[in-house]
Nucleic acid binder design. Sequence first.
DNA 1: CGGGACCTTGACGCTCATCAATTGCAGTGG
DNA 2: CCACTGCAATTGATGAGCGTCAAGGTCCCG
Lengths: 245, 245
Amino acid sequence: MGQANPPSPLAPFIAKLERRCPLAPDDREALLALTPSVQRHDAGRYVVRAGEQNLSFMVLLSGYVHRHRVLANGSRQIVAVHLAGDLLILPHTAMRRTTESLQALTPVKVAEVAAASMIALSRERPAIAEALLLESIADASIFREWVINLGRRDARTRTAHLLCELGTRSAESDLGNRTTFRLPLTQEQLADVLGLTSVHVNRTLRGMKSSGLIDYGNGWVSVPDWTRLRKEADFDDGYLCLDPA
Amino acid sequence: MGQANPPSPLAPFIAKLERRCPLAPDDREALLALTPSVQRHDAGRYVVRAGEQNLSFMVLLSGYVHRHRVLANGSRQIVAVHLAGDLLILPHTAMRRTTESLQALTPVKVAEVAAASMIALSRERPAIAEALLLESIADASIFREWVINLGRRDARTRTAHLLCELGTRSAESDLGNRTTFRLPLTQEQLADVLGLTSVHVNRTLRGMKSSGLIDYGNGWVSVPDWTRLRKEADFDDGYLCLDPA
DNA sequence: CGGGACCTTGACGCTCATCAATTGCAGTGG
DNA sequence: CCACTGCAATTGATGAGCGTCAAGGTCCCG
């Protein structure tokens, strides 16, 4: 409350953590007292490359990042789209080599804290460890939903579902309204999220547009009728774990 | 070491935790001192049903369990296959209603500890919280791999990849050798894992069999040439996070 | 011996991938 | 101001991979 600290760049991230897992004032102070280094990257730049061993706990401060893997056969699958406030790399994950890359979709700012100091902090303060665990659990829940989406929904439903998720998460991260939000992905990138080809994504989006499900263009989506989209998408936001446990 | 506790049913689970995250003796003792209740379920029975609010931290002691969701259109997607020693429900996950069900594939034994006491324990003992976080991170990594598998690999590669994963995990859980392991899933259940139909799974498996990639039958798989299977599957076990961080 | 899972196989059709142009648009330099 | 360039979106034609439907076949168990 009455602290005189300089404003931390991590503040939005902490706020997001606290939506799931409220922290005691001294735990919050401890997080705010971290002095992350802040990196900027242009759109298209890699934040972390596959094969690198990164040693930092990382948080996305602004912009959009995707996490993807390039397969032996040359195809690519995007496994996550990160919004401002998202955790990009957990402290323990930082210690190991990854086979996935993180790439900026827009100009981004990323905060980095040495993994070791984050681990030390969460050992001292159980509440912080707990908050990180909850983030990790929520992430895993999203990945499972993507498995379902890719496994058992057709192109249109699958696309609609992705848009519902991104709308909801954008709203949750104060990046707009769930019915009007930014979507800084090319159709080819959307295809790599959805396990489709860009040609088919194009046809699917145009189909959704022409039936009035969504309005789409220029990196933005707007949803005239949320209930209808939600129904077509078979979307239930429970898996996003938005309410505190 | 020299403790006189009665053998805890959790011992194999703890051993598995420690492979990723060694514990100090007193932390291990604290886990061993838990007195879980042990439930048995027959094959086919639900361990947890979608929509229920379960209040227990749960560990699979023996047998096989799958986690799945039934969609509005009636189709089903299995999002995880759990082996003995796996964590079924994390403490915090236990507090919320789930949209996925856990169902026994074989007769199983499941240990339950009240979520609240597990949360209390991990607040007292940072090392335990840390071990749980690592488990959760490893789970999430597996889910991402499944996203990749469903999104960008064809039926044969995808099936081969699943078999590589289950072989490796079986070996890791001391359920056999990665080249000869139990696979207690019907072809219809495999289809629900792989996002295919049972007819196509059948053809895929027979194809793999007839080209000598695998030997399959009666709930068991054996792999004549691991390197070959691994290559066809585009499998790299890094995502399983088997080495300690 | 009958019933019920599960596996197997064939015929056919639909989604979605592939290949290949073409269009639109923003940036860039003459 | 206008070619020129390059990336993304769009569209059409064709075909493959996988789904759907339907019919046995096999094995286990009561």
